[in-house]
Amino acid sequence: MEGVPERPEEIKTTVSGSRPVAPGPDPDTLRHPLRHHGDAEAAPGLVDFAVNVRGDAPPAWLRARLAAALDDLARYPSAEHDRRAREAVARRHGREPEEVLVLAGSAEGFALLPALRPHRPVVVHPGFTEPEAALRGAGLPVGHVLTAEAEGHRLDPAAVPEEADLVVVGNPTNPTGVLHPAADLRALARPGRVLVVDEAFADAVPGEPESLAGERLPGLLVLRSLTKTWALAGLRAGYALGDPALLARLAAPRPHWPVGTLGLEAVTACSEPAAVAGAARAAAELAEHRRTQAAALATVPGVEVLPGVAPYLLLRLPAGRGAVVRERLRRNGIAVRRCDTFPGLGPDHLRVAVREPARVALLVEALAAALVGVAA
């Protein structure tokens, strides 16, 4: 690949707050399957705590809006469709339309990262694994900065190597649910570096605190998803925010008509003031459900609920018991997200989506039963 040395030196893995400890994992021996996601756990017929999508279907008003756009499907998506979507997103974040790139879900943004031709990319882990999968798939060496559970998985900006020219971090981070202070993320921005902040779940946190979506920093690229809050995982809808020149580099390898008409309509609709207000109300409800769910799960002997703010919770089970408990839950009709596919976590970590209290009661009962005879 142009601009990448033949035998690039691997950036060393760093544990946040400590010295570099080891090279990043070789893709041939990587024990974490980077492309394993929650949808692989959520088989039909199971009560789904594995996928972080709110609700079982988009709200009625959004379904009606998308249905009305069906008559346009005989025509190719137009520049006008794209312009309307970018203008709606720009108004929502106080930016200019040229600072918006509409995506087929934020995952497309991660798939495009190799187009930026970084020499020394670094991903903060535990975190969403698609950015690393895309970079490794392009033959790039990927370094890790591992946050520590003993420190609440907080990121120390000083742990990111100075030589990193692309840094990827989630906020809030998936699967830990940790919300990093905006000041810590700003400290990572500098000339010659692209800072990618994954804000896929930012709109699910009341008030969207610590978001950089409205900020203009050198090399900042913020990715947003609409699939979680609006139950659009099957449609794929999201966008990137950043300097127009950076967005142009990111978009260079895309085909013509990269986002379909329905995706563009969804981005437009979900960025309008009424939808943003609706998302804010949903975030407040989710936060209350999260508090209730965390308290209920904490009553189960052997379960530790780790701190966070996102619409999911990271659990730690007794050592060596995670795989057995997960399989027992599955046999009892409950799907949860395994976490040994995230660098920095292991088989005794589970992630569970925040759900309404009736479903949570099923999870608590099944989890207590699954732990009988296996709790340390």
Rank of each mutant, 00 (worst) to 15 (best):
G3N: 02
G177D: 02
R321Y: 02
T292Y: 09
T29P: 01
E356N: 09
E149P: 11
A245T: 08
V259E: 03
H32D: 05
G55Y: 11
G127M: 12
V122D: 01
R351N: 14
P255E: 13
F342E: 04
F201G: 02
R249Q: 12
V372E: 15
A275N: 01
A282T: 14
E80K: 10
S78Q: 09
A88S: 14
T229G: 10
A204I: 03
W230Y: 15
V21D: 14
A245Y: 03
A40G: 12
P209T: 09
D72N: 09
R328C: 03
S271Q: 05
A164M: 02
D203K: 00
L146T: 10
G143E: 12
L66N: 11
L221V: 07
P33L: 11
G219E: 02
A240R: 00
P77K: 05
P191I: 13
G242L: 02
G152N: 10
L223Y: 06
A115K: 08
A296D: 13
G105C: 11
L166K: 02
A252S: 12
P301A: 12
P206V: 08
A295W: 09
A298M: 13
I11Y: 03
C339K: 05
P258M: 04
T229E: 12
H153D: 11
R291D: 13
R117G: 00
R190W: 13
G38L: 06
E163M: 05
A233V: 02
V53N: 02
G242H: 04
N171F: 03
L212I: 04
R291A: 15
R63N: 06
D56Y: 01
G3T: 06
V89H: 07
N171P: 04
